[in-house]
Design a protein around this nucleic acid. Sequence first.
RNA 1: CGGGGUAUAGCGCAGCCUGGUAGCGCGCCUGCUUCGGGAGCAGGAGGUCGUGAGUUCAAUUCUCGCUACCCCGACCA
Length: 590
Amino acid sequence: MRASQFFIYSDKSTPAEAEIISHQLMLRARLIRKVASGIYSWLPMGWRVVSKISEIVREEMDAAGGAEIFMPAVQPADLWQQSGRWAAYGAELLRFSDRHGREFCMGPTHEEVITDIVRAQISSYRQLPINLYQIQTKFRDEIRPRFGIMRAREFIMKDAYSFDTDAAGMANSYEAMRAAYCRIFDRIGLKYRMVEADSGAIGGNFSHEFMVLADSGEELILYCQESGFAANVEQCPQLPPSSAPSASAARPAAQQTMEKIHTPNVKTIAELAEFLPEALRPEQNMKTMIVCGDNGSAAVLLRGNDSLNLIKAGNQAEIGDNARLASLAETQQLIGAGFGSLGPVNMPLPLIADYALHHAADFACGANEDDYHYTGVNFERDCPLPRFADLRNAAVGDPSPCGKGTLLGARGIEVGHIFQLGDKYSQAMNAVIDAPDGSQHPILMGCYGIGITRIVAAAIEQGHDENGMIFPDAIAPFSLIICPIAAQRSPAVRLAAEEVYQALRAAGVDVLLDDRDLRPGSMFAECDLLGIPHRLTIGERGLQNGEVEYKQRQEKEVTLVAQTAVVEFIQERLQSATRPGSSVDRAGPS
RNA sequence: CGGGGUAUAGCGCAGCCUGGUAGCGCGCCUGCUUCGGGAGCAGGAGGUCGUGAGUUCAAUUCUCGCUACCCCGACCA
């Protein structure tokens, strides 16, 4: 490809709307252009990156036994009504009507359509297992799109769906996808981690996320160096007190008497810690939250410096699904006191305490009366002994749930998510098969997503410096760029650049020849901004010795290469750069 | 959905308070000089000032409506 014929532009100034580095660089390098909020055009340079990612995904999906299909972006309400999601899905589902008044939506995902395809074709266990996938545009009407491509409303996703006869088959299909995902992210060349995850709204009970590691990542990953355990903070369990080695002792005996103290305007744990004596630091205070769910309400007790995990709260029988914090009005009606003054003493609701409070004694808490707290409170003596459960978000420094080490933290960007769906959709939409034993039952499904376009942003978040993007070789828009210096006035440079370009093309190298006759500074700055991993500079200075200059994007120093040996040299560099494994951190549960 | 802000040339911004039909930097075009990390000089092109109404002799500027975009919030007591 010649730069003069390619759509290659860049800008020195950073667009005001872009908050994160990947968005800024993508706009500056003209990878994308915004069309509307959360909706972008991919321009040629950006589309090459997307295409390279898609191709790797496609190859590995095919290798893992997937068959590619292409489903419509526009889906009829009818299918969504069959699965029950027309009502269940909220405002993120973009709905509209056609000229006849029939209702449609833009697909945020394709379980309904794929289940409809499969139920029409598959009636016997003999036809299974199968795995169908597509690379398609999705639309989710996010409340607030931001961070450019990272959280866009329209985006490209690879979604695969597996169909099996029984649970063992579904587990096999899931494992095949898990392995394929590792190969995909190995090949793309990003540092990532596979973590245990919550299955969220899609359903099912077994799920992993693939997270690209980047300091700017929105998700917190907790992992254990010793065992390789890794989990999303939303999902990471904590050990029950009985099995946590550091907390196996009995609860200390009460030392203090319970005392009611006036605490005007003390609403937060920080304010309480400020107000109380030195000895009562936040972790010795107890905070109490009222959580409501489908089964009812409960008072949830946590250490002052811990944070509530609503997913875990929803797993408690007293609370149930759709767990949420009570509103101020609800709290005042139920308890007679507002936020910040709640506690377990004389609490009319069931008490559930986090494991971390199992050994709490002489603690401070709200008095269920505005502007009053108790100190010296003890379970059993002053209030009932609560039921203990895993309720808090795990944190860096906790004992790892694997029992072997301590949890460390890392930030990540979710780029892949795999689920076992079971019969959630096949049951609702009547996708059943005849089993070997003559019975009929719903097909067991799995679904497997990769955010193709988000990977571009994640790669830039992970790989950039003050000069621009640093793409891994496998997904860079071009592998190599040739920069001729002052070609217009040097026939020798022009000729050499052309020869090298043709030779590399013939050797199958993905090479861009910058034939725009820019000044060297502009050319180099643009190369760096675009993150093209390898660069050959051809100038009169080197040609006098029959040499051209090679530079790798991240290296400061250049290497002189004989013009006659350049193809061989470049091929060797490209091969060593794409050799997998070296830069990949692939710890995770096995 | 609530709060705040913005809308002026391809991009980044000034002008508006105090009304008189628009300017800067980058980019773009022409010429000359340059040519190894976003060159210099000279000349030039490019704007119904988001949109609709109102006030006024006169509105980019003041007033109101609308639209789009951005930020914050919408769970940690």
